[in-house]
Design a protein around this nucleic acid. Structure first.
Lengths: 132, 132
DNA sequence: CGTACTGTATTAACAGACTAGTACACTTTC
DNA sequence: GAAAGTGTACTAGTCTGTTAATACAGTACG
């Protein structure tokens, strides 16, 4: 199981790592129940801080993809393949939207803004329309 | 022309203001060529810093929605209604995606991450698939 | 012209996200 | 039960985005 991240890629390292793990599960390189690399080992291999690996693992745990056992290690959750598949589908949904918007001439900033607007709308009551 | 913003809404004030202006143009409350409120006047009315209004106006100018004339004022661009309509359509695209993802159980963080992943993919070469 | 109004530019204060450093607590193995 | 290995918790530094404070430059109008 070889991971690789790019600290100067613009996107956060912990996020890149999360994607890598999900991808590995999707293609079957990581199986349910299997143990993941330990924090320090992976951190050393990627030449990053162990806390960055922790961040990735912890968020993956929150998504139900991995399971952290204190003192024992990090393991691929039993439901991981299913969740990873859902995650992949979600990715497709967003990819379609972003592609359409990008094709319409919107830049990164504008796309990010649209997302924030929609999230804010959800956070509020969500009245779908634009007439308060 | 009455605008209103909420400084503790979570989303940036200048962004809220941009939406308001676009909305006003979409519904015809602001017509092409019409003069917008001056920086200081609007800032005073909304009880925010003039620079925040500047930020909104300047970005709207970058999107071709408004036109800033040094010493004269801010005006609704001739192409504004058309651009505002495109902007509205883009909003619908993103709204659909976000709604679907939200319905699938994803929270704000996860949705934001998906966007960043997709933007990063665009920024790179965009190979659509997941197999580099 | 000159006054009062416009937008412009530069700098700083503040908050949040990301990463790093260091010490702690639990499991496994012998 | 002790040592080595695991994840956990807390703190601090750095960077970026947002807002604010203040001084500058152009335009309109008498």
């Amino acid at each position: 199981m070889i991971f690789h991240v790019n600290p100067s890629s613009g996107s956060p390292i912990y996020l890149q790592l999360m994607e890598q793990v999900k991808h590995a599960i999707e293609i079957g390189a990581l199986l349910a129940g299997e143990q993941l690399p330990t924090l320090r080992k992976l951190a050393e291999e990627l030449v990053i801080n162990p806390n960055t690996v922790v961040r990735a693992y912890r968020e993956l745990e929150h998504e139900g993809i991995v399971e952290l056992r204190h003192g024992a290690g990090a393991f691929v959750s039993e439901s991981a393949p299913n969740r990873a598949k859902i995650s992949l589908k979600a990715q497709t949904v967003m990819q379609t939207a972003v592609d359409r918007l990008s094709a319409a001439g919107l830049n990164e900033k504008e796309i990010r803004r649209l997302v924030e607007s929609e999230l804010a709308r959800l956070r509020a009551g969500d009245m779908t329309g634009r007439n308060a």
